[in-house]
Amino acid sequence: MLKPGRKTSNTLRVCVHIGALAPLLWLYWAIPQGVLGADPVKELTHFLGIGALRLLLLTLCISPLARALKFGLLVRLRRPLGLWCFVWAALHFSTWLALDLTFEWSLIGEELIKRTYILVGLLALLLLLALAITSIPKLMRSMGKRWKQLHRTIYVIALLVCLHFWWSVKSGWIEPCSYLIIALYLLWLRRDSIMSYVHFKHRPVAHDNGASS
């Protein structure tokens, strides 16, 4: 059997770029055509938001998949997937800001204060921004161990985004619930590393004295 190598991972990276960019190019065509229906702003916001969530979950699929397939180079997909997730999330937020609330700053301020689910989404976006900035290879190297710690916030982001989605729907919990279940499953696959991280952060004494709690 052919061992998957750099060439395969390069091809897959190109696929990621095409897969994430093509729907945006389609939107560029579809919006003037009126494909998004009578209330296109709402539709566009939702389309971009759901897309960002899917990209986020895909990003979280990569390491478990790499392990299962014994295809280490697959982790090279994490960076482009994560960055595209940020781009989609930023477009989702910009649509709300520019097209829905039409830059009415007093209304925007009021909405951010009053609607906790929007604040939750914004927090997730800011965290994603931090991850996007620090994914520059140079910064990544200079940050050393702290880079890994910072990038573990993607677990928190995943939960925040699921909460943001669930909170935002008018009725029907099945769709947001399915995304949450997938997110929880992907986190459960990492339960050991998450637990040791939480353990290490909050109970440093435990290492010296295993019996205490």
Binding site: I31, D39, V41, L99, L101, T102, E111
Partner: peptide
């Protein structure tokens, strides 16, 4: 009187225009 999750002070009017000419 706001909806708990959004303001009811203004609305998007659905007229002739598309996404980039949407008005509140």
């Amino acid at each position: 009187v706001d909806h708990p999750r959004w303001s009811q002070a203004s609305e998007r009017f659905i007229g002739e225009g598309g996404a980039f000419s949407s008005s509140r």
